[in-house]
Every structure is written in structure tokens, then in C-alpha cells.
């Protein structure tokens, strides 16, 4: 729609308050954080003495930060991979048009309405690592079902513990993938699938050569959304494991080093590195999504 000068001003004034708030609280604050990350600020009082990139250099040589990076990678792979696989599998089952579909869908998606704290508190007891006579939670269930080989130490397993945290994360977020894939599946014209079947394609071929390639953009979007959540994970780990170095992630380190340790410079540097990793994922995604929009 063509708009004249007066309308342009009026419309700008309508968004101006929000634009100003975002400019200050998002971009201004990121700039401020960047300045803190280049300072020597330790302790309660602000200290903007120039420190160059020393906070970043310290982090790269910091064994705890290396654990964080490793944990983030492991968590991301299992959380995103698990959610996508479970989401696609259940969406395909839901798409068969069976009775009770609505109820199943409602059950798969409800954890999305909960907070990571609630999820974490409950799973903390489900993943109770106590052994022997103190067996409880899922381990006890496995034992009662005769599946003793599944009994494990969950998040207290040395080195691999972070993978156990991906389980409640998948529990909470896979519903998102179910919904995304189901919407994607419903958008595929039936004739396309039918004609492939008429041509003699097996069910497996139908899915691997037609359905999955069509769903690629859905997979891509889900990966980006879950992937960026995974980089920011904090509440869930707090609620399941508390503050433990083996389960440490950048967001936890940032919080502890800043608000408990008062190493503001270092905390700001972690925050900025987190932002950078999210930006690498999200900025191309925003550009990709907004390109090719048409105005009605």
C-alpha cells in the first residue's frame, strides 16, 4: 500500500515506543555487555578499566569452559536428534487418520505447557541414580519389569551424564516437532503419495524419496529452533542436577561466575559468546524466512 508522508510519520510514532525499548534493552544492552566483557570488572562495583580480550583468552584456556562446550555439543546432538526422530515418527503415526488422533496429539504436546523447572524437578526423581536396595524412579521401574540391563546412573554417569539431561528435554520439546511435522505432512497433497503407490513404490520408498525431502524445510526450522534453545539451556539442568561441574553449560557458568562469583567481565564474555553462537544460527534463518514474502 502506498503511504504518504503524514501516514509514514503516524505509523512510525505507533511503533516508536517499542522500537526504542528494543533498541535500548536488546541492542544497547548487548553493546553494554560487550563493553563489560572487555573490562576488568570484578566485585560489586563497576570497573570499566580496559582489559582487551583477556576475559575471552582466559575462557579459551579454562578447563571448565571446555567442559561447557563439550556438554553443549553432546546435549545438542542428543536433544535435537532425539526430538526430531521422535517427532517425525509420532507425526507419521498420527497422520494415518486413526481414531483418537486428537487425544494422542494432546498428550504429546502437553509438556510444552510446563516450565523446565517443573519438568526438571519431576525427572530429578525419575532419574534417581541410587543403586542396590535404594533403587527408585525409572531404575526401579526397569527392575520391576525385568529390564535390569537398562538400570543406569543417569546424569551422574561419569563423562556422559549430560546426555541423560537430554531425555527430559526431549520429553518436553518433542511435541513441538510432532506439531511441526504433522502440519508439514498434512500439507502434502494426497495425490502425490497415491500416484507413487500406484507406480508400485513401497511404503518405505514413499517416505524416503517423497515425504522426507518435502519435509526438509520443516526439519530445518525445527533444528534451528531447538538448536538455539539447546545453546541456552539453563533451567532444566539447574532443576535436575543443580550446580555441578560435570553437568555445566555456558549459561550456568555465566550465571555463577557473574552473580555468585562477581566476575562480571568474565560473565559478560560468556554471555557474548553465547550470543555469537545463537546469532550464527538465527541470523541466516531470519533472512531465509523473510526473503520471498509477498504482500497481499
Amino acid at each position: 500500500m502506498r503511504i504518504n508522508r503524514k501516514e509514514a510519520w503516524q505509523s512510525f510514532l505507533l511503533v516508536a515506543p517499542s522500537v526504542a525499548l528494543i533498541a535500548v534493552f536488546v541492542y544497547g544492552f548487548i553493546g553494554w555487555t560487550a563493553r563489560v566483557s572487555l573490562s576488568e570488572w570484578k566485585g560489586l562495583l563497576p570497573d570499566y578499566t580496559w582489559a582487551g580480550f583477556s576475559n575471552f583468552a582466559e575462557l579459551l584456556a579454562d578447563p571448565r569452559f571446555m567442559i561447557d562446550v563439550r556438554n553443549t555439543v553432546l546435549f545438542t546432538v542428543f536433544f535435537v536428534g532425539g526430538s526430531l526422530a521422535l517427532g517425525l515418527g509420532l507425526a507419521i503415526c498420527l497422520d494415518q487418520g486413526l481414531r483418537g488422533e486428537g487425544i494422542f496429539r494432546a498428550i504429546y504436546l502437553f509438556p510444552m505447557a510446563l516450565s523446565f523447572i517443573v519438568t526438571g524437578v519431576v525427572w530429578r526423581w525419575l532419574m534417581n541414580p541410587a543403586m542396590g536396595s535404594r533403587l527408585s524412579g525409572l531404575n526401579l521401574l526397569f527392575h520391576n519389569l525385568g529390564l535390569d540391563f537398562l538400570i543406569n546412573e543417569w546424569h551422574t554417569t561419569p563423562f556422559w551424564g549430560i546426555i541423560a539431561i537430554a531425555l527430559p528435554a526431549v520429553w518436553q520439546m518433542s511435541g513441538f516437532c510432532v506439531a511441526m511435522y504433522l502440519a508439514g505432512l498434512r500439507a502434502i497433497p494426497d495425490e502425490l503419495i497415491e500416484s507413487a503407490r500406484v507406480d508400485g513404490a513401497s511404503e518405505f520408498q514413499v517416505y524416503s524419496t517423497i515425504v522426507l525431502p518435502i519435509l526438509r524445510p520443516v526439519t530445518f526450522s525445527s533444528m534451528i529452533i531447538l538448536g538455539h534453545m539447546s545453546l541456552k539451556v539453563f533451567d532444566l539442568i539447574m532443576a535436575v542436577g543443580g550446580k555441578q561441574i560435570p553437568l555445566d553449560v555456558p549459561a550456568m557458568y555465566m550465571w555463577q561466575v557473574t552473580f555468585e562469583g562477581l566476575f562480571y567481565g568474565k560473565g559478560a564474555a560468556i554471555g557474548l559468546l553465547l550470543l555469537l553462537s545463537v546469532a550464527v544460527l538465527i541470523i541466516p534463518y531470519i533472512i531465509y524466512t523473510l526473503r520471498g514474502e509477498t504482500e497481499l
Partner: peptide, 19 residues
């Protein structure tokens, strides 16, 4: 302005917490 606002959905809040 729109994409700049959109980016705000995704930022890790750790990058704005101190300010």
C-alpha cells in the same frame, strides 16, 4: 526494523543480564 525486532526473540538473555 522488523528483522531487528525479530532477532530479539532468539537472543540468549545472558547477553543482556548484566546491564
Amino acid at each position: 526494523i522488523f528483522p531487528l525486532i525479530l532477532f530479539g526473540i532468539f537472543i540468549p538473555y545472558q547477553s543482556v543480564l548484566i546491564p
